[in-house]
Computed example of a mutant assay.
Amino acid sequence: MPLVQAVTRPDPYVPFLISQAIEANGLVFVSGQVAIGDDGRIIAPGDFDRQADQAFRNLDRALKAAGSGLHRIVKTTIFLRSIETAGRLVALRRQWLSAPYPAESMVEVPSLSSPEALIEIEAIALTGDQ
């Protein structure tokens, strides 16, 4: 089965030769989504809540471009600059995700793709309405 690349507009990952998402065999693999705004810059430096909200918005957009959605996520990996912000993700999960909640790994990292980024979310989801 061929790989299908999801395309978003704008797509800030094009210069880096990275796909926002790839669909293969009924699964969507979404690249790590950070708080990039439509202008290609990280929004709200230093504001974890606003960055996390934008990262979820970008995740939603990439999933929709791949023919899926947040309700189809089976696994997320969340990278945090500070594990101290992990507790605030519970409220965000309620806002963006619904039961059954996806399996998840959370990792604290010293840096992300931009020094201003505080969170990055990658996901694996099912395609369509399977």
Score class of each variant (00 low, 15 high):
74 V>R: 11
81 R>T: 15
43 I>L: 10
59 L>V: 12
84 E>T: 03
69 G>Y: 04
53 D>Y: 07
53 D>M: 05
86 A>R: 12
70 L>Y: 04
93 R>K: 12
92 L>N: 03
65 A>V: 05
85 T>D: 15
56 F>Q: 07
96 W>Y: 13
81 R>G: 14
42 I>L: 04
57 R>K: 09
67 G>E: 07
79 F>G: 06
83 I>V: 11
65 A>F: 03
76 T>I: 15
83 I>R: 09
63 L>W: 11
49 D>K: 14
69 G>I: 01
76 T>M: 14
58 N>M: 08
42 I>D: 03
52 A>G: 10
73 I>L: 00
89 L>M: 07
85 T>I: 00
44 A>F: 11
79 F>D: 07
70 L>K: 03
64 K>Y: 08
91 A>H: 01
64 K>C: 06
85 T>F: 13
58 N>W: 08
41 R>I: 00
81 R>I: 13
78 I>A: 03
48 F>Y: 08
66 A>H: 06
68 S>A: 15
87 G>T: 01
70 L>H: 06
50 R>W: 04
47 D>T: 02
45 P>K: 06
93 R>N: 11
94 R>A: 05
84 E>L: 09
50 R>G: 11
84 E>S: 12
86 A>M: 10
79 F>P: 07
77 T>M: 06
68 S>G: 14
77 T>R: 14
55 A>L: 02
80 L>T: 12
52 A>V: 04
93 R>D: 06
65 A>S: 15
52 A>I: 06
85 T>V: 01
72 R>T: 04
70 L>V: 08
65 A>W: 07
46 G>T: 10
81 R>L: 13
75 K>C: 08
86 A>W: 04
57 R>T: 15
41 R>S: 09
58 N>F: 03
60 D>A: 15
50 R>S: 15
42 I>N: 06
